[in-house]
Nucleic acid binder design. Sequence first.
DNA 1: CGCCGGATTGATATTGGTCAACTACGGTGG
DNA 2: CCACCGTAGTTGACCAATATCAATCCGGCG
Lengths: 269, 269
Amino acid sequence: MSEGSASEVNDVGNHPAQPSRPGITAIDLSPVIANLRLHAPLSAADRSAIETFLGESALRVRAGSELIPAGEPGMGFALVDGWVAHEMLLDDGRMQLTALFVPGDTFDLNADLIDECEYSLRAITDSIVAKISTLQLRRLTDRHPHLRDAFAWERLQQLSNNRELLLSLGRRSGAERIAHLFCEVFCRLQHVRRTRGNECDLPLTHGQLADLTGMTSVHVHRSLTLLRSQGLIEWRHGRLKIRDFERLSAFARFDPTYLHAGTNPSGAS
Amino acid sequence: MSEGSASEVNDVGNHPAQPSRPGITAIDLSPVIANLRLHAPLSAADRSAIETFLGESALRVRAGSELIPAGEPGMGFALVDGWVAHEMLLDDGRMQLTALFVPGDTFDLNADLIDECEYSLRAITDSIVAKISTLQLRRLTDRHPHLRDAFAWERLQQLSNNRELLLSLGRRSGAERIAHLFCEVFCRLQHVRRTRGNECDLPLTHGQLADLTGMTSVHVHRSLTLLRSQGLIEWRHGRLKIRDFERLSAFARFDPTYLHAGTNPSGAS
DNA sequence: CGCCGGATTGATATTGGTCAACTACGGTGG
DNA sequence: CCACCGTAGTTGACCAATATCAATCCGGCG
């Protein structure tokens, strides 16, 4: 359904984030920090440790490229900016995206123990990622217990998102799956301050959304038409506007509890 | 689709496993040990530590009961014997099982950090489980690095199984999902020496299998009829016989790589 | 014997997939 | 500035997979 391409990875430079030095292409690590802070208090020392750590290993990857091709050893990541997905293939070409990551997410922590990965990591947009090995992580968290807690939470969050997607694929209708995904993405972006009013980025094609929700791009289109005709959403040029969060989340039976972040964005506007 | 009931939990006694003392109702911890040994070498000390740990906290739970009701705090477990599933509910009654555990599995490690669980744990059969808190786990793994590795692997395995189920629900047909599940269960039971020839337990009802595969019990039945008519399986009275593993796994496009255990059971018979 | 929870079966309704145009639009080269 | 191209979005007709509804059957158990 989607098209692969060779892995394109370029070093972004290993200057730690330096907001105090304008003119330098400093990397904005705030989404990663925001996510980590959702579940554990971070001291200034904790933050500076993680900032140095991420800043030193940030890489730029191009839209469409694979961070990790299937069959190769795994690797942990922090997604500093951009969108990335887990992609799984059946040998007859059927394809399913099994996870979607947005700026600030960490994923596949400890996956470097695996030496033959059955999925691949696909960059949806141009992105900036930082590799995180189990060893480095262990060194970091031994010295910063709060970070250990924060990363443990992020791992749990991953499982939680998996379960909710399983519930969608197993029991929600096509339109419900899409509506649910929109609610989830909006909330997750809100946690990292990447929403503006009731709008956020959603840089997916219909085909990618189909691969994520286990549908066809044709059916995705029809379901979107339904959601639009109900006045629930608008979505053009990679930008999603949620016109009625209450009704959309009721339609999708979206319950933000599983995001474990407290804030229900109903009032966002 | 399934029916709930109040949590029924009874202490099984806290004698560590004592195979050397017949006559006492010793608990057989070998499936848990077997799973842990799949990915890390365990010394005699490691094994005795985990045996003592599990033996002391083993509990008996009854078929149909909930180990953890949705909405309550989470808890980690080792499934010493029996079958357990993760169950998720939509508010209109639609239900999906999002994970299935067999003897020897550990699951939800670190989930005790969560104070409001959006899923529940349902005992499919009478089972014996041992609770594992993050704190206890940390104490244990600090002293036994091999156990730390083994538990890290088990967590990764959980994610891996999730992904494969997502691929099934998103892209495999009903019959393929069932065939795939049969292959997976057989392999997992083989790893803990719970198969005999090409047979193993499969104590599910059609309805539970439907809840796991995102189908209807009626359609499960029709798909089973197909698999049976092709001479691929037999399944009666909770006992599954795989009549042709090669053809079954080809049909399901089952690739055991994701189980990360090396052994392909094609030759089992 | 009668009850009950599954299993089995058939008829029918829905959902979603497939195929095949056709359109809109951004990017590129002339 | 415009012609051309390629990707993605849009639409309709039709088909296949799966759900729904409603009996009926079967085996275990009080």
